[in-house]
């Protein structure tokens, strides 16, 4: 699903910074976050817990509540800076042109409304429609995401559905208004691999049919490699490497990306120690100086301990590292 490189991007994020205010000061959960997304493109946003990947997703559409605060940066969606919109204007964007799918559908669906009631709410929020037509649109969308007997399901409550079904309802709700961008935050993490496979298959088909751009936030490199066009790897609140899936996974330039790839079983012979990354990701309140990855990095030098690495790039592939890996030498 590669689109025209010359056309202006659907989404352009520049220097986005979101901080969390605690008693002893403000700590950035994401900092200097910049990336672009073209229409119809699938971007995998990968990172471990605490890397800021979910905060990044929420910050794009202004869904950050106290003690969090989006303090600076631009989020230009089709040329319009979403950060400059009033709450009312932003409401008209959310759920219409940009929609979001969350990790846990049991907590994001309203337990006291039927599936149909909450789906129709998403329609009536943005347009005036005849209830019968809205209901039919819900049923049609439910069918699209692989829900069997949607006429019955539409009148059921969330607790009557399995986890996989509930996540399908959340996806269907996100699709109702034919958005141009969907932000999906770990939508399959809580599901079994078989159900995850089904949902990935449906997302792939729907994405191809509708040409919706997709930001897929996950910790699972395997999932994005199979689904995404491009990958952004996040660490300690920033993107450390971004590029085409093949470039990033086949010739990673950042040692953290390589470390993640080596941590998963597959290349290491069975029963032998996996090539682990030492240590743990830094907490929000204790981000190291210089390159945030230096305490865990096997290539770290004095420079890394003091200075933040600048952005380096080769074509569509860019990274932040003082000592990037040689693309010729990595496996």
């Amino acid at each position: 699903m590669m689109s025209d490189q010359s056309s202006s991007p659907l989404l352009a994020v520049e220097n986005l910074r979101t901080v969390f205010h605690f008693a002893d000061g403000a700590y950035p959960a994401i900092d200097s976050l910049s990336f672009e997304l073209r229409a119809g493109e699938v971007l995998g946003l990968v990172g471990e817990s605490g890397s800021g990947k979910s905060v990044a997703g929420f910050s794009l559409i202004g869904l950050v509540d106290a003690p969090g605060e989006i303090v600076s940066g631009e989020v230009r969606f089709k040329g319009r800076d979403l950060r400059k919109l009033s709450d009312e204007e932003l409401r008209r964007v959310r759920g219409k042109s940009v929609s979001m799918i969350f990790q846990d559908p049991l907590t994001t669906l309203n337990p006291v409304l039927t599936i149909g009631e909450q789906m129709m709410e998403a329609i009536s929020e943005h347009e005036t429609v005849d209830p019968a037509a809205a209901r039919q649109r819900c049923i049609d969308t439910l069918t699209k995401v692989g829900i069997t007997s949607p006429q019955t399901r539409v009148d059921q409550f969330p607790h009557e559905l399995s986890g996989g079904m509930r996540q399908r309802v959340a996806i269907a709700t996100a699709l109702l208004n034919q958005p141009e961008l969907i932000i999906a935050d770990e939508p399959t993490t809580a599901l079994d691999v078989t159900i995850q496979g089904q949902i990935l298959a449906e997302m792939q088909t729907l994405q191809k049919e509708t040409g919706t751009a997709l930001i897929w936030i996950t910790h699972d490199l395997g999932v994005v490699s199979e689904l995404a066009d491009r990958i952004a790897v996040m660490y300690a609140g920033g993107i450390v490497e971004i590029g085409q899936v093949d470039d990033v996974l086949d010739s990673p330039r950042h040692p953290y990306t390589l470390g993640l790839l080596n941590s998963v079983p597959g290349d290491t012979p069975r029963g032998e120690a996996l090539r682990q990354i030492e240590g743990a990701a830094p907490s929000l309140t204790a981000r190291p100086l210089g390159c945030p990855f230096h305490p865990r990095c096997f290539r770290a030098s004095d420079l890394c301990r003091t200075e933040e690495p600048p952005l380096a790039e080769a074509g569509d592939h860019s990274w932040r590292c003082h000592h990037p890996l040689d693309p010729e030498k990595t496996p």
Binding site: Q198, S225, E226
Partner: peptide
Amino acid sequence: TLLAEIPSVKRRRRAFQPVKGEL
């Protein structure tokens, strides 16, 4: 079926053909 569903960094832009139904 289970083996076919293991996500892998070796596969790119796969056409998913998952097992139908749920447990």
